[in-house]
Nucleic acid binder design. Structure first.
Lengths: 217, 217
DNA sequence: CTGCATTTTGACCAACTAGTCAAGTTTTTG
DNA sequence: CAAAAACTTGACTAGTTGGTCAAAATGCAG
């Protein structure tokens, strides 16, 4: 009896085996594709399992609930998605810092559009799985950077502008190209795929926003 | 026999009765709320029926398929949603025209956020129900207005800017407040509900975009 | 190589949901 | 006001889907 209990306790550290590592990765990669396209409700476990190349019960062996996959995916993605914001340097040149931030976001929209869509879908539906994250992690971070921008405005390094709305505008504009990709393609056609498109987009967005917030005489 | 056929032909004009008009309206209003919150897959006919105050079979008497409600709703909404774009006047003052367009869009985002979310959700999921609409109706309209903006740029009335990206930026920025409402609230808290919030938003958005595209010496 | 732990899966179940149907009720019309 | 048309609904069906389970297959430590 005591032995048995000790055994169970030993398992507590939850060591992950090689196979676990591989399969969890396979599942999460597959799930990102499917969830970002069809949303949480629109995705079936079977779809994810098939794309991950395993049976449904096997998938459920690694993630006992559909929710688990979804939440794990969101958590994994969000930190990465927000990293560029944290890097804005209060001591740097304001225009340069914002130019860099916008450029990073446009790049991410092109290289990881699924992550953007996963997040957009979640927020659009009221953020049931990440409302805690929004208030506990995102809000403080945004507050901090908003304070930085407000200081820059106070020092006359930027035109007077509400920092929160500026941040929203940057998010909205950059993520638009990932989230509304179908619409952008319907309107701009074959241009979207072409080599220089990302640079052209960045140039247009940067031009408008940076000129919009540059201090005026 | 001939009589019977004539009778059927007579029904062809599909006259709508008073009750039909009332109930279709009740259903579409209820459906907008539910679809815009939970998406197509996430919405059940029972939910819509309950909110519309009738039984499910009764609802299905008016719209035989769930799809029918959804598509009708999208068609009804989109025309209204795009109307402001069509009103941009090539002969007017560029800055004034765009100021008016942005203001209208921000107002719509506040008064009809469900419409924006319904559309956002559809496009986010690849626009399966409205890809025709995008290419046949939206694209020509945008092409037309893009040509107007390009002319304005050519005449030196606007800073050199890609008209398509400018339009995307206006869409993204204004609709962000409807589509990402939960996130905006999580960050700006009680300010969002307050009386002057819409005006403050409009002021910030207008200030950045208009200064960003105003011709520079 | 052996025995235990981990991994894998076919078969199954219960809950849910789009849509049907036949029988009733209400409204309209001649 | 009577008959026809329009409307309404309880009860049902068939298909889907999240999740279970027990038994088989595989991996691995000693």
């Amino acid at each position: 009896m005591v032995r048995a209990e000790r055994k169970k306790l030993k398992e507590a550290p939850e060591k992950t085996t090689r196979i676990q590592e591989i399969n969890r990765r396979l599942i999460l990669d597959a799930a990102l594709d499917v969830f970002s396209t069809y949303g949480f409700r629109g995705t079936t476990i079977d779809q994810i399992a098939e794309r991950a190349g395993m049976s449904k019960p096997n998938l459920l062996y690694y993630f006992p609930r559909k929710q688990n996959i979804y939440v794990t995916l969101l958590e994994e993605t969000l930190a990465e998605w927000l990293a560029p914001l944290a890097e804005i340097d209060a001591e740097g040149d304001p225009i340069e810092q914002l130019r860099n931030y916008i450029t990073l976001k446009i790049n991410m929209s092109e290289t990881h559009p699924e992550a953007s869509r996963l997040f957009a879908n979640e927020v659009l539906h009221g953020a049931p799985a990440i409302s805690d994250f929004l208030s506990k992690y995102l809000k403080p971070l945004v507050d901090e950077k908003a304070a930085v921008i407000r200081r820059w405005v106070g020092e006359g390094k930027l035109a007077p502008v509400d920092p929160y709305h500026l941040i929203f505008m940057i998010w909205a504009t950059t993520q638009h190209y990932a989230d509304f990709d179908v619409q952008v393609r319907a309107i701009m056609g074959s241009q979207v795929g072409r080599p220089g498109f990302k640079e052209q987009t960045a140039q247009a967005v940067l031009s408008i926003i940076l000129n919009g917030i540059r201090p005026r005489d």
